[in-house]
Amino acid sequence: MSGILDSVNQRTQLVGQNRLELLLFKLSSRQRFGINVFKVREVLQCPELTSIPKLNPYVRGVAHIRGQTISVIDLSMATGDEPIENLQTAFIIIAEYNRSVQGFLVSSVERIINTNWDAILPPPKGTGKASYLTAVTEVEDELIEILDVEKILNEISPLNTEVSSEITDNINVGDNTEKLIFIADDSSVARNQVKKALSTLGMKMELAKNGLEALERLKEIAAETGDVTDTVGLLVSDIEMPEMDGYTLTAEIKNTPELKKLKVVLHTSLSGVFNQAMVTKVGADDFIAKFHPDELTAAVQKWLLKTPDIIE
């Protein structure tokens, strides 16, 4: 298991090609789950956990790993299932989300699979608002479930979505007051966080659940006027989304005449030095790490005030 992520740096070539790799794992049942390898720092056998009073019940304890104290969340309990019982045979997936590092307790870790984002599909209809799924895919005739980790983390430790008075007292969107901000994110929690933060700008907003849905809708809007920027002031997009990722979405926008003047801000919990290179490669205008309401609002306001590029 120690070598499962040894070649992670070589996997950066998949980014921007609508491809990803998933680390497969199990919780308390036979069902397999997947997590994007780029979220994962390390996989290790569950070490001794230290209990701390008044922790959230889904947090089984803290682990001291490489000089850092990390909270260990039982993903089985957090999704409404039975707790993982045998910690001696369990594993911890050390992952980074929303500028913080967490440990996810799982019963077993299996292998890494290579797939396409267009093979990652939204959850089946009827799963309901209580579902913790953000996507599903099929591997060797078996359904692999991808958890909405942002929803889980927000239930354990809700993020602040309030924008400070320092930002709200100086709101200025120029001539964009009648335009809308378009938001694309597969996590319902993340979409609502972005929407709430950006509501301080006083602009209309439209939301999409993935990159393909966003692209199709933006083309519909552009068809009405010939240029999407007549209606849309800016796009804020996640990177990891079913059917079409944010990098591919951005590249499609910049290569489509009626869309290419649209400013694109990528807003994601992915981290790593490869991100800035990919932002440049696909033509995105900015990259903001999730989730800081002041930084996001300030960045959106800045790009709304930028004069659209004149592109022949």
Rank of each mutant, 00 (worst) to 15 (best):
F274K: 12
L44H: 10
A289Y: 06
E312F: 12
N9A: 13
I167F: 05
K39R: 12
G103L: 11
L266N: 03
D74N: 05
Q102R: 08
V279T: 14
A90S: 15
S164K: 14
L22I: 12
I112Q: 08
S7L: 00
V264Y: 11
L235S: 04
S199L: 07
S7M: 00
A214M: 09
L212S: 06
K261N: 14
V43Q: 09
L22Q: 13
S188W: 03
K196E: 15
T280Q: 15
S108D: 15
P124I: 11
V109T: 13
A78M: 11
L218T: 02
L180K: 02
I73E: 09
L75W: 05
N160F: 09
L23Q: 02
R111S: 14
V15P: 03
K196G: 07
H267W: 13
I52R: 00
T256P: 06
P242Y: 08
F274I: 13
P242K: 06
A119H: 13
E150K: 00
V273D: 12
P57N: 03
Y132R: 03
T134M: 10
G226V: 10
K219E: 01
I73T: 10
V8T: 04
K209G: 03
V59I: 15
F104D: 03
D238G: 04
I253P: 00
G126P: 05
L49H: 03
G202V: 07
R111H: 14
V136A: 03
D81M: 14
T69Q: 08
S269Y: 11
D294I: 09
N36T: 12
T79D: 05
K254M: 02
E312T: 10
S2C: 05
A130W: 00
I4C: 07
I35A: 05
E162C: 10
F25K: 02
F91V: 08
Q31I: 15
R66Y: 15
I310A: 09
K26M: 04
P124E: 14
Q10S: 12
E213K: 07
R32A: 12
S165G: 10
T248E: 06
Y58K: 07
F25R: 03
R41G: 06
A298D: 05
V8N: 03
M1E: 06
S2A: 15
I93Q: 01
T79F: 06
T161L: 02
Q68A: 14
E140V: 07
F25D: 00
W117C: 08
L207W: 03
I92H: 09
A223Y: 01
P123M: 10
